[in-house]
Each structure stands twice: as structure tokens, then as C-alpha cells.
Design a protein around this nucleic acid. Structure first.
Lengths: 251, 251
DNA sequence: TCGAATTTGTGCGTATGTATC
DNA sequence: GGATACATACGCACAAATTCG
């Protein structure tokens, strides 16, 4: 018989106690020493059970403090489609407005950063060519929900009013609108979403658990000439955001 | 001082030996006992180091056999866009053809399956209402690369020639073409990609490592009346497939 | 054909680090 | 600063899978 390993049994016990409202959202569980004694198993068994539930988003561990029942956070719906790009404002603000939250962001731009190999390939330029790099931290109601690093070829915008994505008269208007200002028509975007685990740095920036799952989107905007004009690495934590692609069907 | 833990040191040693071509793709590494003795550490340290590299896709463990250097598999590019839906044939076959592989699939259809709660909500029907469920296994050159479970409301197609997605004269033509046959115009699709880890069953079906990362896509097709006509759960393993969304920009 | 040896995978305990209160 | 609790690292024992004589 495939008898259930102890740590899975304990996991079920914990899950059931939560379902029975013995502990509810935000409550702190008893320490592992207490639980392990109460259930008659080793501390490590409890730890494994808690790790499992943490990875499933049921619990949340806080070093030095305790293990808590995770609060059911309302996820932000991020729509990625052509329709989203039509307005004049920022796509992100529109997304946030749609779920009744205030959208904001912080950014830090560096001009004349040499392009690393992967970015150069994506932008169709040579490695080491200069770029404008902007690091974003997107906030919903003041809390970070998304990270992004954007790269634009410096040659493309040098000497114009839109060199800096978040500076000048067109600050924060978005790539499509800014490029339009200097006569470049952005015709389409390509997004490549990949699943991975958050780095420790990303986790602390986003306020999520250590190896939580994120979708890493490599996005590139192309002009109607087929030339890449911007590429970005976007990190979307699954615990905070829900990604939606809307695809029109033409026949 | 934050001195590097032994298992990370061993991981670097292994990585470097692979980089130096001491071991190359497909080679079997020496057993844990040998490596641990050679490097003067415990067996468990080697195990942890290997686990790390396995999770990064550098190594591959085969129970009872050994630990191998992972073969750099060419990933299949799966394009998800409106353009892809235009042809008459199957979108999947087109994707496979684009990368020079032969696309095929196996399917198993059950008519009159009561809809579970989540599916019912996605299809806009009541829980327990009957559906046509089809389970797919998509193959590239005979090897599975993608899984999918599709649900259609039974009421929609009952009594027509397109009741069975993979039977009748329009077998395998795709949802859009089949619905067109019975006078329903599919106007758009909504896809919701979420990162997660493969279940043991999915991993064995797809021939990937146990908790490997996958993108779970919830896709729903809508008619021009705004009514859901089909919804599917698609499992795309990151190790085998590269997902690409093409987004046109209209201004 | 079958069973023994080898190798990876899993479960669990202990020691130590480190954050929080 | 001390006590408490979680996080990490490591070791051992055993199960499961594979290989080979």
C-alpha cells in the first residue's frame, strides 16, 4: 500500500484546520515546536508540510516572526492587447483604473548604457552599442506589482525631445506615443512570456515569497519598417497579477 | 564574512567542468559517491549541487541510472496571434511546419460530460450542464510537446456535424472553422497564461523533469455575440516550447 | 528470467544562521 | 541584548528505478 508520508498528512491537517476557520487570514500559526509535539512528529515534518503550503500560496513564512495564513490578495488584471495601446495615456494606468486602483510608477533612467549581447540581438544592433535604459517599478495603490527594464537604442532618439522615456514634455506617454512624436510608427509588439521563479532581489522588491512564480515577458516593439525600437524585460508575479491576452480573430 | 556554502562551490565546479567540455551533452556524470570523495565533501553536498543544476536545466537526473548533462533541446516556437487563426488548416500544424517539424496530435473525446464549476463559469453556463470534452496531446516529430483539455457546451453543437472536434467531416479543423460551419462567427479569443510547476503526471506525459516549469494557458473563444463557445486548459512546458504573442498596434 | 549491485530520489533529524520582537 | 521562530545547510537511512551478470 502507498501509505501517505507524514509530511503530507500534516499538510492536510493544517489545510483542514484553516478550512474549518480554526485559523483565518492573517493569523499566526503556532510554532513548529508546538505543532510537531501536538501531532507527534518531528519538527522537520512540520516544516516540510508548511513549505508545501507556502509554495501553494496557502501559508506565508516570515523569518523571525512566524508562519501565517496567507491573506487572499486581490490580483491585478493586466490586459495585454492591441486595444490597450490605443489611448493617449499610459496602458498601465488604464489597467489599474479598470480594477479600481491607482496606478503609479517609479523609474530610473540611464542614457548611454552599452547593450549586453541578448539586448543587442533583440534590438538588432551590435553588442556594446549605446542604449537608454530605464528601470521601472509599477505600483498599484502604492504597492509594487510589476517590474520592468526597458532598452531603447540611443541612436534612435538622440537629440530629440523624447530621449528620456520619463523626462521632457512626453514623459510617461508610453513607447508608441513617444515614437509617434519623432515620426516613427510603431506597428506591432511581440511578447514572449516565460515562467520562472523570482530572484531574491525581485521577491523583496515585490513583497512576495522567495521563490514565488513569475512570468518573465520579453517584449519588443517594432516600427512599420520592421525595425525594433524598444525591448523590455517585464517581471509579473503570479501572486499579484493576472495576465490577459485578447486576440482578435480575422477571417 | 559570507563564505560560500559547500554545495554552491561544488555546483560551480560541476558547471565549470561542463563548460570546459570535460563532460558534454548527454554524458553521464560520475556517481555521487565518486564526486563526493574526489571533492572531499559529503555525498549530500553533491546531491544538493546537482539538484540546483537540474532545476536550472543544466543537468538531468535519471533514477537508477545516473546524472546526465542535459541535451540542449531545440524549443518549438508556438505563435499565438490573430494571424495564426486565419488559415484553413490547424494552427498547431502551421507552428510545427514553421520550425521544420511534423505536427500531429492524439485526442480522446467524451460527449455529455457535466461541467465542473470553473469550466461552467468560463463558458457562461450552469455547473453540471453537459459539455463535449476533448483531451489532446500535441506531438512534434512524434514527441509530446503540449497538452490541452478542451470544453465546448454540448447544447451549442448537438445534432450538427461538428459535435465532435476530432470526428466527422471537419475533424481537426480548429474551433474557429468548425463553428463557422454551423453559422457561428468566432470574433476573438482571450488567453490567460499562468506560471506553475508540472504535476508528476504531466511531467511523465511530456517527458520533462518532475517539477519543471510550465505555462498554463486558460483560453476561451467568444462568438461575435460575446458568447463563450469553447474554453481550454493548455499546458506548455518551458523546456520544450517558446510562446510568442504577436500584438498589432492600431492608432 | 531473475536477483543483486549501483545510482538517483525521498524523508527526516540535527546544527547553525538570521531575522523579529 | 536576549528569547523566539523561521531559514539554511548537511548527514544518514531507506525506497525506487535501472542496469547487468
Amino acid at each position: 500500500m502507498p501509505e501517505q508520508p507524514p509530511y503530507l498528512r500534516i499538510a492536510d491537517v493544517l489545510r483542514q484546520r484553516i478550512a474549518e476557520r480554526e485559523w483565518t487570514s492573517g493569523d499566526r500559526l503556532p510554532s513548529r515546536a508546538q505543532i510537531s509535539q501536538e501531532c507527534g512528529v518531528g519538527e522537520n515534518v512540520v516544516r516540510r508540510a508548511q513549505e508545501l503550503l507556502i509554495s501553494q500560496g496557502v501559508l506565508e513564512g516570515r523569518a523571525g516572526s512566524g508562519t501565517y495564513v496567507a491573506e487572499p490578495r486581490q490580483r491585478v488584471r493586466v490586459v495585454r492587447s492591441s486595444a490597450r495601446e490605443q489611448g493617449n495615456g499610459s496602458p498601465f494606468r488604464a489597467d489599474m483604473k479598470a480594477v479600481g486602483k491607482q496606478g503609479n510608477w517609479e523609474s530610473r533612467t540611464e542614457a548611454k548604457v552599452p547593450a549586453p549581447a541578448e539586448i543587442a540581438a533583440r534590438l538588432g544592433i551590435r553588442e556594446g552599442n549605446l542604449c537608454v535604459r530605464t528601470v521601472y517599478e509599477f505600483l498599484a495603490d502604492g504597492k509594487p506589482v510589476q517590474l520592468s527594464t526597458s532598452w531603447e537604442p540611443y541612436d534612435l532618439t538622440a537629440g530629440t525631445l523624447v530621449v528620456l522615456p520619463e523626462g521632457g514634455p512626453h514623459a510617461g506617454a508610453g513607447v508608441v506615443n513617444r515614437m509617434a512624436e519623432i515620426g516613427i510608427t510603431v506597428s506591432h509588439a511581440v511578447e514572449q512570456p516565460e515562467p520562472r521563479q523570482a530572484s531574491t532581489e525581485e521577491a523583496s522588491l515585490l513583497g512576495i515569497q522567495k521563490a514565488a512564480l513569475v512570468t518573465h515577458i520579453r517584449r519588443t516593439y517594432y516600427s512599420d519598417q520592421g525595425q525594433p525600437v524598444e525591448t523590455a524585460d517585464i517581471v509579473v508575479p503570479a501572486a499579484l497579477c493576472e495576465i490577459v491576452y485578447e486576440i482578435p480573430i480575422n477571417r
